[in-house]
Amino acid sequence: QAPETKIVDKSRVACDGGEGALGHPRVWLQIPEDTGWVECPYCDCKYVLKGSKADAL
């Protein structure tokens, strides 16, 4: 199944896999201003900063 994409309001987000005990260790991710998105290294969930150029795609 394809990784999930989430639109977020802040450039710093936490990801834990979203499945409680079945998820992964919580990691904090920083969305770079130049790209407007970041992917979780564990679950490949893509976080897109709302209003960024990546959000316009």
Rank of each mutant, 00 (worst) to 15 (best):
43 C>W: 04
29 L>Q: 01
47 Y>T: 03
6 K>M: 12
45 C>K: 15
41 P>H: 06
13 V>P: 02
28 W>D: 00
53 K>I: 12
47 Y>G: 11
3 P>K: 14
32 P>M: 04
45 C>N: 15
53 K>A: 10
24 H>N: 03
44 D>V: 12
57 L>F: 13
37 W>D: 01
5 T>L: 11
51 G>E: 07
50 K>S: 09
39 E>Y: 15
53 K>T: 09
25 P>K: 10
7 I>T: 05
8 V>F: 03
47 Y>N: 07
38 V>G: 01
23 G>C: 00
37 W>G: 05
12 R>H: 07
30 Q>T: 13
15 C>P: 00
19 E>C: 15
35 T>N: 02
40 C>W: 09
26 R>P: 02
19 E>I: 12
51 G>A: 06
31 I>E: 02
15 C>N: 00
40 C>Q: 08
21 A>G: 09
18 G>P: 13
5 T>M: 12
33 E>D: 08
32 P>Q: 04
57 L>D: 10
52 S>V: 08
23 G>D: 04
38 V>E: 02
35 T>H: 07
41 P>D: 01
10 K>T: 14
42 Y>C: 11
11 S>A: 12
22 L>N: 11
32 P>I: 06
39 E>V: 14
38 V>T: 07
9 D>G: 07
34 D>E: 11
26 R>G: 00
31 I>K: 01
54 A>E: 07
4 E>T: 15
53 K>L: 11
18 G>H: 13
42 Y>A: 10
25 P>R: 11
55 D>N: 01
48 V>M: 06
49 L>H: 10
28 W>Y: 09
31 I>G: 03
21 A>I: 11
47 Y>L: 09
39 E>K: 15
9 D>V: 11
14 A>P: 11
44 D>G: 15
24 H>A: 05
43 C>P: 00
34 D>M: 06
42 Y>T: 05
3 P>R: 14
44 D>F: 15
7 I>G: 01
25 P>A: 09
12 R>Y: 12
51 G>W: 03
14 A>F: 14
25 P>V: 11
19 E>R: 12
31 I>R: 03
33 E>A: 10
24 H>T: 03
33 E>V: 10
23 G>T: 09
18 G>T: 05
37 W>M: 07
28 W>F: 06
41 P>W: 06
41 P>E: 02
2 A>Q: 13
44 D>Y: 15
9 D>I: 10
4 E>F: 15
14 A>M: 09
23 G>E: 06
29 L>C: 06
41 P>V: 05
46 K>T: 06
40 C>S: 07
29 L>N: 01
15 C>G: 00
3 P>A: 11
40 C>E: 05
24 H>F: 05
19 E>H: 06
